[in-house]
Simulated assay, not measured.
Amino acid sequence: MSDLRVAIAGDLHGAWGTSDEAVLARLQPDAVLFVGDLSDGDLRLTKRIASLPYPLAVILGNHDLGRDRSGGILRQQLALLGENHCGWTQRGWSQPAIGLVGGRPGSAGGGFHLSHAVQAVYGPITLEQSADRIVAAAAAVPEDQPLIVMAHCGPSGLGSEADSPCGRDWKPPAVDWGDQDLALALDRMGRQRPPDLVVFGHMHHQLKRSNALRRTLLRDRRGTAFLNAACVPRSGRDASGRELLHFSWAEFRGASLTHLSHRWYSPDAQLMHEEELPRQEAMAC
C-alpha cells in the first residue's frame, strides 16, 4: 500500500506564482489543499489555482470576499472554483481515496459570525445549522478513507493564549478566537468517528505583538491532528540567504495519518527545513 501525499498551502494573500507551481510539479502530491485567504478577491488568482492539474480542494477565507458586502465577488469565486470549493460540503475523489469536509466559508474567527457577503450567498445560517452541515458532510466519507476537515479558521477549544493555534494575538487580552460551530461539529463527529486531520489557517504563525511563533502542530486525546498552515509570508530566505517556499505536508497510509509537518523547499523542490508533529504528542483538550 503506497502512502497518500497531500500538500497544503496556507494563507496566500496573493503570494502565488511560477515558483510554487514548479515545486508542486516536482513533488507531484496526490492532492493539494488551500485553506483560504487566497487574495483580496483577485479573480485572476482564483482562476489560476482552479486550473492546477491536481485533485484540489479550497475553502475561501474572509479576505477572499473582497470587501464586497453584496456577495458578488464571493459568487464569482465560487463559480471559478466549482466543485473544488468545499465549504459545508464533502469533497472526495476516487483517486486519491481521501474524504475531505469543508467548514464554514468566509470565516474571520471569533466564535461565530456570518458576514454580509456569506449571508447574501448562503442565506441566514445559525451556529447549530452550520455545525449540522459539517457533521452531515463527514458522515458521507467512507470509513476506509482518511477523513480531513478543512476550514479557514480553526475550532475553538485549542487554547486561549496568544500563541495558541487560534489565539488572538493582535490586541490584549489574548482569547480563544476559534470557530465555535467547527468545535461543535468536531465534538459531535468525535462520538462516531473523529477526523484524522483538521487543517486551517487564518491565524498567522508570526505573532503580532512579539517575535514569538504560534503553536501550529498538535494532536488531541482522540487522536485527531490539528495543523495551522498559515505561514505568512509563505516565501523568504533562511539564515544562509537561500530562497525558501513553505508548504505544509501530510501523508496517510490507508486511513491512518503517518506524517504531518511544515516544510520549506528551495525553488527546485529540495527539502531544506522541516518541523514535524511527533506521533504521540497530545494536548489536554
Rank of each mutant, 00 (worst) to 15 (best):
N62P: 11
G110T: 14
D181P: 00
S39W: 12
F112T: 12
L184A: 15
S261P: 03
D40W: 14
N228P: 13
V101C: 04
A117E: 02
I125K: 05
G106K: 08
D238V: 15
G103M: 04
S261I: 05
S2N: 07
L81K: 06
L184D: 15
R214M: 08
A139L: 02
Q95Y: 02
S115P: 07
R91N: 04
V198L: 00
D196R: 10
L227N: 03
H116V: 00
H202G: 09
Q90K: 05
D20Q: 13
S19Q: 14
L213G: 10
D268I: 06
P195V: 02
W177S: 09
V121S: 02
D20H: 15
D181F: 00
L158E: 11
V101F: 08
Q76N: 09
E83T: 14
P165M: 11
R221Q: 11
K47D: 04
A31Y: 14
C231H: 14
I59T: 14
P142T: 07
A151I: 03
E281Y: 10
L197M: 08
A255M: 01
G178Y: 04
A7Y: 11
D196F: 00
R104K: 04
S235N: 11
A25M: 02
Q90H: 01
R219H: 00
W88L: 06
V199C: 07
Q76I: 02
M1E: 04
G66L: 06
L147M: 07
L186G: 05
S210M: 13
L186K: 09
L127G: 01
R279M: 08
V101L: 04
F112G: 09
L182C: 05
D187L: 15
G159Y: 09
E143S: 12
I98C: 08
H85N: 11
G110R: 12
G236S: 11
S70D: 00
R75T: 01
D40I: 07
H113F: 09
I49A: 01
L78W: 04
R191M: 08
F200Q: 00
L127E: 13
C231W: 15
R5L: 07
I98Q: 08
P172C: 02
D40S: 14
D42R: 15
E21H: 03
A50E: 03
D220R: 03
